[in-house]
């Protein structure tokens, strides 16, 4: 869609459902992918809670974010980075997550941010 390429990073930091942040970030990610720009997603802080499996959001009248997230690979969005410390703090093991994720420590996160052209936060 555009000859210019910019690398985008979306930083997710919010838990799902309680606010629109997770869904807002997902919609932006899908759009960036439609524009065929290099894209990475980073899950920090409470956003790692988005990655827990087996949501059943119909119970609260919302759409199922884990179903939506499993769609990312259909959009060829495969750079999913996760803050290791955020997982540990919440007692989540990487094996609990059904998506293909890349764990990052603090310096890994700094390096990821450093190499981006644009960073959008949610």
């Amino acid at each position: 869609m555009s000859d210019t390429k910019k690398s985008f990073l979306i930083i997710n930091r919010k838990a799902p459902y309680g606010s629109s942040a997770a869904r807002d970030a997902l919609d932006v990610a899908l759009t960036i992918s439609v524009f065929e720009q290099p894209l990475s997603l980073l899950f920090m802080d409470d956003a790692v809670l988005q990655l827990l499996p087996a949501h059943n959001a119909a119970a609260i009248g919302q759409k199922n974010l884990s179903a939506n997230l499993s769609m990312l690979e259909m959009y060829d969005i495969d750079q999913l980075y996760v803050c290791q410390r955020a997982l540990e703090q919440r007692g989540i093991r990487p094996d609990d997550i059904e998506l293909n994720i890349i764990l990052l420590d603090q310096s890994g996160i700094a390096a990821l941010i450093k190499k981006q052209d644009q960073v959008l936060s949610f």
Binding site: R13, R85, Q106, I109, A110, I113, K114
Partner: peptide, 25 residues
Amino acid sequence: MTLHLINKTPSESSALRDSLSAVSN
């Protein structure tokens, strides 16, 4: 190099803590 913009108090969100852990030289 990055300018980190923080708009929350240290206790109303983890914004500050997260930004501090993500800074580069």
